[in-house]
Amino acid sequence: MSELRVVTVDGSPGAVDHLARALRAALDGGPPVLPVVPGEAVVAGEPGEGAAVAIATSGSTGAAKHVVLSAAALRASAHATAERLGGTARWLLALPAQHVAGVQVLVRALLAGAPPVVQDLRAGFRPDDFAAATRELGAERRCTSLVPTQLARLLDAGGTALDALRGYAAVLVGGAALAPRLHERALAEGVAVVTTYGMSETAGGCVYDGVPLDGVRVELEDGGRIRLGGPTLADGYLGDPGLTEAAFAGGWFRTSDLGRWRDGRLEVLGRADDVIVTGGENVAPAAVERVLVAQDGVAAACVVGVPDAEWGSVVAAAVVLDGRPDNRALDGTALAERLRAAVRAELGRAGVPRILRAVPRIPLRGIGKPDRMATAALITAEGPAAPIAPSSHPRNG
């Protein structure tokens, strides 16, 4: 049984090239790879036969776990992606290579026989660097993978960065929910956006634009919990057979997400453990966020539950306002009532945010997911909300 080959990646092209060579060997039956960032503790465990890589999850529900992916799962995902996107392409890596989305860009490039171009991320993601890396990429058919924050920065930058973005045959966007307004804006600018849904346990994105990749199976349990199956599933969690047995059973992975079918496509509603129970009613934060970011003046939003003595929890929202990066309570303002009215009309009274805060930015974790714990701390640190009209109360909205 092979031991893990630890490869340190710091965002530099040289380090990523080292990782790519290690992945190439792992895909051909060599030792499995564990990509880590500088200073990260190295985990122990036996990955098992056929393993190619161990990937740390983002740790959204506690301590990060390490998912073991086989060479077969990585290959199945890469081949299914090429099939869905219309063939092989030259890839640009603009994501951190230690995450599953970054690893999969490398695997797709390796299997296509065309080495990727790597954007240097040591100083963070910069639109000018993206444009320069795209020029280096060349190729008639090129693809890349981004998170929504990166997509927004490229659109905001305009100029050569936006021109570079328009030149991709496909821009996979995942890692966090893509706000409808941002999606529409990108499409209007001529960007070939493909939304993806998946996680480390499924070798990255396995549902594109709401449609499962070839071979991927999707089922919804009672209550809407999403289950995923097919050849891209991970072998389990490194060194944790109990957790593996609980999450992977009968050829399925039971996610923490809720979803529904809409016009034949999977719509992800958010995490089951994020659901806010207020006054005995369930509210999905992602649904409230989609309504808020669709309103004029709102650039981003994160919705959380805040403990309340009377209602158990109340819905609270942190919003980033277009052109107003201040940090203040919105309660009592015309904008607040407009936002609440929009939520009430779309989702009903229970979803109406009782607390609204304007913040400079939404706290993020991993490669771009909203950090709900940090957002809740940010909201509550501002003190109690100003009194609001009874019509905005969770039950009387």
Rank of each mutant, 00 (worst) to 15 (best):
Ala247Ile: 02
Val117Asn: 10
Phe253His: 15
Leu34Ser: 10
Ala176Phe: 01
Gly279Ile: 10
Val191Arg: 04
Asp274His: 14
Thr244Gly: 08
Ser200Met: 12
Leu27Lys: 08
His393Lys: 05
Asp163Arg: 14
Val68His: 00
Gly11Tyr: 05
Leu85Val: 13
Leu339Phe: 08
Val304Lys: 02
Arg181Phe: 03
Pro180Met: 03
Ala89Glu: 06
Gly124Ile: 14
Leu19Met: 06
Gly14Trp: 01
Asp120Leu: 07
Leu339Lys: 07
Leu4Gly: 03
Gly48Phe: 01
Val218Met: 07
Glu337Ser: 15
Thr232Ala: 09
Val33Met: 03
Ala317Gly: 10
Pro370Asp: 04
Met373Glu: 15
Val53Asn: 04
Pro325Thr: 15
Gly30Phe: 14
Val218Ile: 07
Ala186Cys: 13
Arg357Asn: 02
Leu154Met: 07
Arg344Val: 00
Leu121Lys: 10
Ala97Asp: 00
Pro127Lys: 08
Val288Ala: 05
Phe248His: 12
Ala317Ser: 11
Ala164Gln: 07
Arg141Pro: 00
Gly48Gln: 02
Val33Cys: 08
Thr196Asn: 06
Ala44Cys: 10
Ala132Ile: 06
Ser313Val: 04
Phe253Pro: 00
Ser60Gly: 09
Val117Ser: 00
Leu330Thr: 09
Ser70Leu: 07
Ala389His: 13
Gly366Met: 11
Val107Trp: 05
Pro212Val: 03
Arg181Ser: 06
Asp10Phe: 04
Ala246His: 12
Ile379Cys: 01
Arg395Phe: 06
Leu172Glu: 14
Met1Trp: 05
Gly223Phe: 02
Leu178Ala: 12
Leu220Arg: 11
Asp235His: 13
Gly397Glu: 13
Leu69His: 10
Ala318His: 12
